[in-house]
Write a protein that binds this DNA or RNA. Structure first.
Lengths: 204, 204
DNA sequence: CATCTATACGGAACATTGTTCCGTTTATCA
DNA sequence: TGATAAACGGAACAATGTTCCGTATAGATG
């Protein structure tokens, strides 16, 4: 059980990637792999075979393992990427919509994110050391994103106050978890209910 | 994806086991397998290889599969058994200890149960159809067990009222989940804190 | 443009599992 | 004691993560 991707390198030699000179095909393949993994994970869950991902990316398994020494590294990379995307969507919605609509839209986006991660919760709770850092990253990126939206909506008097940001994230993720077989209408209805709850005792 | 262990048999023929005549060695091996699985799951987590369990039981894999057609059936059997044991402990504690002490002791027992199930949460959240029924069984057995202890302790004025039984079960399981590497002192301290909370505003 | 070399690539081969199959053993009964 | 249905053991198969190494190529150099 060796920890990879440590912060400090023990050798003085820098790898090519660290010197900033990466061959074009290498970078292209890395992108293809991430795209492919995102697609395959979404359709077959995070337990999908590596070979499927390599094939989808039009690449050999050797190449996959060159970029992601362990299967879990790939899962990690995809998750990080999608957490980032979800967090960044908050700013977009804020800029384009009113406070409550932005909040509501983001919650929908968040539910979408959770739903594409069938089996991820399993990995997180498995105690596998490879995923130890994920919950912290999840919190680090998603908490501020939601916090901003909540503050704006509360400032506008659109929703009640006294809400715990983390609890909202957890609750929504929670009621999505058992929704794997029941259709997407379920999560839609639940989220709507939830959002209505938020504005039930709103000042305005 | 065929559902096994259906309630109704499609054929009129009854298997020997159903007629009540089971060979002695078969029953003995089944017991050995369950004991072995409990031990191996506890030490290596529920992802332990079937071969390890068969070896621990002193039995071939064929025999294991004769009794448990799928790996998940064995996991299921062990879980059911341990849920039962945990639920039954409530009555024992009630009979031997005072209301609060019984509650406290059972909570300790419950934490112990949760902790031995490293990786079980993963299985539960994985969406694997084999484990669909487990959460319901968990609730069915553990909720009444805790409810009785709470009622007794509340009746004696030892703890506050207005508690949601399911929430307590969930919360305790929740703070045990991330405790896989940190020593058992952590869960001990947390549970103590938790129990103190329960009696903080107690009538007596 | 030709050549050279570090880097990356592909996929066969290996290791670790879950699962099946079938020849052998044995408990039970007459 | 012999017959036989039931159970047993473990080799063999299949799926999947991971490693290895011969081959191809991007990019630098002359």
């Amino acid at each position: 059980m060796v920890r990879r991707s440590e912060a400090q390198e023990t050798t003085a030699e820098a790898t090519p990637a660290e010197r900033g000179r990466v061959r074009a095909d290498a970078r292209r393949n890395l992108d293809e792999l991430l795209k492919a993994a995102m697609k395959v994970f979404a359709s077959k869950g995070v337990d999908a075979p590596v070979r499927d991902i390599a094939k989808e990316a039009g690449v050999g398994v050797g190449t996959l393992y060159r970029h992601f020494p362990q299967r879990s590294d790939l899962v990690l990379a995809v998750c990080t990427r999608e957490i980032d995307a979800c967090a960044d969507a908050a700013a977009t919605f804020s800029a384009q919509l009113g406070p409550f609509e932005a909040l509501s839209a983001w919650m929908g986006r968040y539910v979408e994110f959770i739903m594409t991660k069938r089996g991820l919760a399993a990995a997180l709770y498995s105690g596998d050391a490879a995923y130890q850092g994920l919950p912290a990253y999840f919190e680090k990126r998603l908490h501020p994103a939601l916090q901003g939206l909540l503050d704006a909506a509360q400032g506008a008097g659109a929703i009640r106050s006294g809400l715990q940001t983390n609890e909202l994230l957890r609750a929504v993720a929670g009621f999505c978890a058992p929704a794997q077989d029941v259709g997407p209408e379920y999560t839609g209805r639940m989220l709507e209910l939830f959002m209505d709850g938020l504005r039930y005792r709103a000042p305005a």
